[in-house]
Amino acid sequence: MNTVILRTVAPPITALMLVFSVFVLLRGHNEPGGGFIGGLIAASALAIYGIAHGVAAVRLAIRFHPMAIAGFGLLLATLSGFVSIFAGVPFMTGLWIYPSLFGVEVPLATVISFDIGVYFVVVGAIAGIALTLEGREED
């Protein structure tokens, strides 16, 4: 599979897929999509890059160990659930704020950070599995 064509097209495809995954993640609350799908797309992107350019290159590119990224995602998701303790409402109650950023009202919510957490867990864990399995090819 390690062909020249794949090596050439892999970087742009990966980049495109990563951007698309973020898009899918963010629109998930209102349209089909969300953290899972986004995460799966991003993980596939990394897997493709890994097949084309080797696992080492991916590991270098994402800097953190995939499992650490997944851990961060879980941490973020859980903390999103615990934020509501400060508002005096039960666990995982969705809290929304609308700070004005350069005049534009930006909705921020714990459910969104939760979904981002989901995204990171899926990216980290699935990419981790894929890279581990691909890594075997080089043994």
Binding site: N30, P32, G35
Partner: peptide, 12 residues
């Protein structure tokens, strides 16, 4: 605050 009911169920 979500139109995609499935996603709202999942995250909220």
């Amino acid at each position: 605050h979500g139109a995609n009911v499935v996603n709202v169920i999942i995250v909220d």
